[in-house]
Amino acid sequence: MKIELNRLNDGFHLEAVNEDGRTVHIDASPDIGGTNQGMRPMQLLLSALGGCSSIDVINILKKQKQPLKDVKVTITGEREKDVVPSVFVEAHLHFRIYGDVDEEKARKAIDLGVDKYCSVAKTMSPKATITHSFEIIR
């Protein structure tokens, strides 16, 4: 795995490019001189947590032959206060599962996806407590 990071202005606006040419913009907050042209690095980490676990949940529900129409996830995180570096100490994922999905199968898929298979969750979990919840929208 390789990421190339390129600076796009004289401030903090960066572009990360993967081996396939896919890009993500990163920037700092305006209060330290950023220009709000990308996500902050810690926002990207929460996004990665949601993306990683969602891929696993979708894959598990497909294997269970569940009629999944869509998945939306809200990820929240709390960081240490008044400490540098300020790592996440808590993260919560709330999954909204769309379709006529069996509740127990959804619960199992989310438990496995977040707690067992998500590499980002495993990376964060030595310092952060990661919890999850879900609802099914038929």
Rank of each mutant, 00 (worst) to 15 (best):
V57G: 00
V83Q: 05
D20A: 14
L14N: 13
A109E: 02
I58S: 06
E78A: 06
G99M: 01
L5N: 06
H13T: 15
S54P: 03
H132L: 05
Q43K: 08
L8Y: 03
V114W: 05
R107S: 03
D20R: 15
I136W: 03
K2I: 11
K127G: 10
D82N: 12
G50W: 06
R40A: 01
H92L: 09
T123R: 07
E103V: 01
S125T: 15
V114Q: 02
T131A: 02
S47K: 06
A121N: 08
K2W: 13
P67F: 09
T35L: 01
R22V: 15
V101Y: 07
A16I: 14
S133A: 12
L49T: 14
A106T: 12
I75Y: 02
H92W: 05
S53H: 07
Q64Y: 15
N59S: 13
E135F: 13
I136Y: 04
R79M: 07
G77C: 06
V17A: 02
A121W: 07
I60P: 01
K63Y: 09
K62T: 14
I136E: 00
M42D: 10
G34D: 01
I136V: 11
T35A: 11
Y117S: 04
Q66R: 10
L45K: 04
V114T: 10
R79F: 14
S29Q: 14
A16V: 14
A48G: 12
G113P: 01
A48L: 07
V101C: 00
V24C: 07
Q37M: 10
P126C: 04
K122H: 12
E78V: 15
T76N: 00
A128Y: 08
A16F: 13
